[in-house]
Simulated scan of single mutants.
Amino acid sequence: MDLRIFTEPQQGASYDTLLTVAKAAEDLGFDAFFRSDHYLKMGEVTGEPGPTDAWITLAGLARDTRRIKLGTLVSPATFRLPGPLAISVAQVDAMAGPGRVELGLGTGWFEDEHTAYGIPFPEKRFGLLEEQLEIITGLWNTPDGATYTFKGEHYAVSESPALPKPATKPHPPIILGGGGPKRTPRLAARYASEFNTSFRPFDDSDKLFTTVREAVSANGRSPESMTYSAALVACVGRDEAEFAKRAAAIGREPAELRENGLAGTPGEVVEKIGRYAGIGAQRLYLQFLDLQDLDHMELIASDVMRQL
Rank of each mutant, 00 (worst) to 15 (best):
91 Q>Y: 12
111 E>Y: 13
126 F>T: 09
112 D>C: 07
277 A>V: 12
70 L>V: 06
295 D>K: 11
3 L>R: 01
195 F>Y: 14
72 T>H: 02
299 L>K: 09
244 A>T: 07
236 V>Q: 01
278 G>F: 05
118 G>L: 05
105 L>I: 15
206 D>F: 14
231 A>C: 07
104 G>A: 10
54 A>V: 14
250 I>F: 11
81 L>W: 12
152 G>C: 05
85 L>T: 12
203 D>E: 15
280 G>A: 03
104 G>E: 09
294 L>C: 09
136 I>V: 15
123 E>C: 07
70 L>S: 02
12 G>P: 11
40 L>P: 00
125 R>W: 06
108 G>L: 09
217 S>V: 02
299 L>Q: 05
236 V>M: 01
291 L>N: 04
10 Q>W: 05
5 I>Y: 04
69 K>V: 12
36 S>A: 10
222 S>H: 00
94 A>M: 13
97 G>N: 03
189 A>Q: 08
110 F>S: 06
31 D>Y: 15
231 A>Q: 08
150 F>N: 03
15 Y>I: 09
232 L>K: 08
41 K>T: 11
295 D>G: 14
226 M>E: 00
107 T>N: 12
11 Q>S: 05
265 T>F: 01
220 G>W: 03
68 I>A: 09
299 L>C: 02
48 E>I: 08
224 E>T: 00
44 E>Y: 13
267 G>Q: 08
115 T>D: 10
150 F>A: 06
137 T>A: 10
35 R>I: 14
242 E>C: 02
11 Q>I: 02
177 G>S: 04
89 V>G: 04
271 E>C: 07
37 D>G: 10
225 S>I: 06
55 W>R: 00
21 V>E: 04
33 F>S: 02
284 L>C: 06
296 H>W: 03
245 K>M: 09
178 G>Y: 13
74 V>D: 11
209 F>V: 11
237 G>C: 08
190 R>D: 10
90 A>E: 04
12 G>H: 06
197 T>I: 15
242 E>P: 02
65 T>I: 09
172 P>Q: 00
164 P>S: 09
204 D>N: 09
263 A>W: 05
236 V>S: 01
132 Q>L: 06
256 E>I: 13
23 K>Q: 13
286 L>T: 03
48 E>L: 14
9 P>S: 08
248 A>V: 11
222 S>G: 02
9 P>A: 11
163 L>H: 01
9 P>C: 09
292 Q>K: 06
125 R>V: 14
101 V>S: 00
11 Q>N: 05
141 N>A: 15
181 P>A: 10
247 A>E: 12
